[in-house]
């Protein structure tokens, strides 16, 4: 069965994972944790790893390190609020339109999210994807260790895509919006750059990938 992989962040909603980390850090139980959490988010944003660590996975690990020590209860309860108030409210019409077209075409729709699964309930309920691939936190005695469980979404590549699609990326279409999505997109049979960032836009032009702009 043909599959359509939709990147949540950028394609379907505005908010990126840093926003989630910031949003949660601001709502830490202890005031001290808010300060350190916000500082971690800012540091993750400012410090862009270079060389072999310059992939999206490392960036995600840094960003979500801000949530170290957060309880599973807090993640679930506030993640629900975030999903409803931020993700659902920020659903982008062009992305939604592509999503619906994929549904109408009978494609198996896979939602690929850098956000952790605990924040996705509301959007999953709305989109009703066939499958969700999202980041997951390691939990130790009811609290987040600050580490993500592999594979980390943000660093997915062609090998992952082929493995996920059953050995071949034939029949797969990837809808991406960031330069970090390029490894996944270039491995797919077809790809679409939706609301692309500067890097992806440039790459899409060079490769002749279709580009869908906001409001299109």
């Amino acid at each position: 069965m043909s599959r359509a992989y939709f990147r949540l962040e950028g394609v379907l909603v505005d908010a990126g994972p840093a926003r989630f980390a910031y949003w949660m850090a601001l709502r830490s139980q202890h005031l001290g944790d808010r300060v350190t959490g916000l500082a971690t988010v800012v540091a993750g944003f400012a410090f862009r790893p270079r060389g072999p660590l310059s992939d999206g996975a490392t960036a995600r690990r840094l960003t979500f390190g801000a949530l170290r020590g957060t309880s599973e209860d807090r993640l679930a309860e506030l993640g629900m609020d975030y999903g409803r108030d931020v993700l659902l409210e920020g659903l982008r019409p062009a992305g939604w339109d592509l999503w619906e077209r994929a549904r109408a075409s009978g494609l198996r729709r896979v939602l690929v999210a850098e956000h952790p699964d605990g924040a996705l309930d509301a959007i999953v309920e709305r989109l009703a994807p066939d499958e969700v691939v999202a980041n997951r936190f390691e939990v130790v005695r009811g609290r987040l260790s600050g580490r993500l469980i592999d594979p980390v979404v943000g660093g997915l590549d062609g090998a992952w895509l082929r493995g996920h699609a059953g050995g071949s990326a034939d029949g797969c279409t990837v809808y991406g919006s960031q330069i970090d999505d390029a490894p996944l997109m270039s491995a797919a049979e077809a790809c679409v750059a939706v609301h692309p960032d500067r890097g992806l836009r440039s790459l899409a032009r060079d490769c002749g990938w279709p580009i869908v702009e906001a409001g299109a």
Partner: peptide, 9 residues
Amino acid sequence: GRTIELTGL
């Protein structure tokens, strides 16, 4: 500790 946090939530 969990009870207090759950009550806050």
